[in-house]
Each structure stands twice: as structure tokens, then as C-alpha cells.
Computed example of a mutant assay.
Amino acid sequence: MKKITAMIMLLALLVLSACGNSDTKEVTGTNDEKVKLLLAAEGTAMYYAYIARDLGFFEEEGIDVELLPGKGGSYVVQQVGAETVDLGIIAVNSVLPAWDKGINIKMVYQVNVTNLFDFMVPEDSKVTDIKQLKGKVIGVTDLGSGEVPMVRSILTSAGLNPDQDVTIRAIGADGTSILTAFEKGEIDAFSGGAHDLISLYGKGFKSRSLVPEEYKSIPSTGIIANGKIMKDNPEVVEKITRAVAKATDYAINDPDAAYEVMKKAVPEQYTDEKLGRLFLDTFIGLTKPLDPDKGYGYIYEDSWQRLIDQFSEGDDPVVKNEINLDEYLDSSLLEKANDF
């Protein structure tokens, strides 16, 4: 009987000990608030999200972030607008059609402050002007990707109807596929993000850009949040932006360490280490603030207005209605995002 009683007491102590350990885990953050962050692209193009996750910057903020990458900017906008997810990171062109429809999506943090998209032809192409693309085929990575609104706007500004005068065809983001499409004459021009083009250039491709000068200084990537979370739980958005700012600062100040993190996070993008490093350095460069005194994520309203103006041109523009940017650009969290 004494042995049975002793065993019962021992089991009780073990249970109490386990409960105590469980309580300790709650304090140290295993019950962090769970957040899904939808990314328009996977890997290096959005390196700051992976570094924030893998170096514990999200965890430091008390949030457990699941990164959901890879279906293009239009998909991310659709999901954030429908409140399927609260937050996403996109190429900013993708959000304009939603704003045009009055969908309550806030731009809360501007990641890249210059245009990361190019619209180009092979160096030896006879096409020297956008108007010469009439009747031609233009390749893009995906029909839902962020470069598509820019392509449509540039075509429209040159007097071409993007639905009638050209064919816009999805080619994918793989450098070999893009190069093959050019060599076989399946496309006459191509538009994609820096990550797509680096892989193409890594194969020796030489190009000539058709992007007008006024399109080069427009914003290109940012964090969006639906209006509901900005109203009900802005603290979560603040934590996301601060973690991203920390990760960006980390990479800018120590790109070698950032490279080691990314090699582990997405090893398939670093099988060619030289090309992988070129990818990363390119995107780190895109996230460096134009004016460091303004901090990370600063939203340049004048460049946004230029973006809206450019995408409002033509008979069938991307932006058909007046967009009041005061309703969609939200800088309220940026001071706190830079408080680290």
C-alpha cells in the first residue's frame, strides 16, 4: 500500500511539473498570436520576411507568423480584400484595380521605393519604340503578376490597346523558359520583376529596356492590410512592420549574414551561389531607404500620385475612377515600426 501511495504521489508531482512547464512556455511565447502573411513571390524577392521569421524578429514581437508564398500579387490582393487573410506583401501595381473598385485595403509600409519591373526586348531587336509592338506577343511571368498592370499602362500611354493590339502571354519566371521563348520567336518582348530578369541575365541574355523614364521612380513593393485589421487590431500590423524593418536593417548592414540565412531558407534558389548572391544583393539594394532619416517603410505620396496618374491613361486604363490616396495610404504605424 505504501508503494502504491508513493507512486501516486510521484505521478501527481510529475503532472504538476508538466503543468508548470506548460505555464512557463506560455510566458516565453509559445502561445504567440498566429498570423498568416501572404507573399506575392517566394524567396529572395521578399528576403526580409524570411529573415524576420528565421532570426526570430517576428517571435520577438510576440507573433507566430506563417509565410504563405507564391501565387502573384493579384491573388494576394484578392485574399486580403476578401479578408481571407489580413496581411500581404505585393508589387504595388497589383492593388490599383482593387482601389479602383473602392476595396478597403491599406498600404501600410513601402518596402521597395523604386520600380523593380522592367519591360524589355533583346538587345538586337528591331523594336525601338513601344508603338512598334503592335501585333506582337509580350511575355509576362503570370497573367496575375504585378508587371501586367504596368505593361498595360505603358502600352496605353503609347496609344496601343493592350487587349486588341498585342497578345500578352504567360511564360513563367524561369530564365531558361524565357530565353527559349525569345529564341523560338514565341515572344517579342518580356516584362518581369528583377528576380525573373536576373535569372535570365545569368544565362547571358542581353536586353534593351522600353520602360519610359517616368515609370522608373514609382514605388514597387509594399505591405498591405485589410481595413478590418487596421481598425480592430492595428497592433498586429505594427508588429509585422517592425519585424520587417528589423530584418531589412539587418540585411543592409550585414549582407553576408543575410546570405547565409537565405541559403538555408530557400536553398533551391542558391544552388548557383554566385547567381543567388546577385539576386539577394539586388533586392537588398531595392530596400535601402532613399532618405535614411525617414526610416524604413516610408510612403512617398508624390510618387504614388504619379503611379495613379500613369495608370489612369488611355481609353481603357487600369484605374478608371478617381482614387483618393488619403483613404488608402496609411503611415500611422511607421514611427512605431522604426522604433527598435
Rank of each mutant, 00 (worst) to 15 (best):
A251W: 06
N112C: 06
F279R: 12
E123N: 09
T5P: 00
A247Y: 01
R242G: 02
D100H: 09
G88M: 12
N324E: 11
K246T: 03
I51T: 07
V113M: 10
T221H: 13
A52W: 15
V65Y: 03
L68K: 10
G295H: 06
Q110G: 00
S199A: 10
G295E: 01
L116R: 13
E42D: 08
S220N: 03
P289R: 14
K264R: 14
W304R: 07
A225Q: 06
D256A: 07
A82E: 01
Y48T: 04
K231R: 12
K106H: 10
D291L: 02
I154W: 05
M7Y: 14
K239S: 01
G276W: 10
V127Y: 15
R152V: 03
S74H: 05
Y259G: 01
Y250D: 01
D326V: 08
D32K: 04
A181K: 06
L133M: 07
V244K: 01
V318R: 15
M150G: 07
A98E: 09
A245H: 03
I168M: 05
A194C: 01
R306F: 02
T128E: 12
D293L: 00
L290Q: 10
L67M: 07
V85W: 12
K239F: 03
M9Q: 09
L68C: 05
D316E: 14
D326L: 07
G175C: 09
G227Q: 12
D124G: 06
G62F: 11
C19M: 13
A251R: 04
G202S: 07
Q269N: 07
L133D: 09
A258Q: 02
Y328L: 14
R152L: 00
G276M: 12
E327K: 15
K264N: 06
S177A: 14
P267R: 14
P149K: 08
F182E: 00
K2N: 04
D339L: 08
L133K: 05
L160R: 08
V318L: 04
I224H: 01
L278V: 15
R306H: 06
K246W: 01
A52D: 02
V266D: 03
G185S: 02
A40V: 01
P162A: 06
D118Q: 11
A45M: 11
K2C: 05
I299A: 10
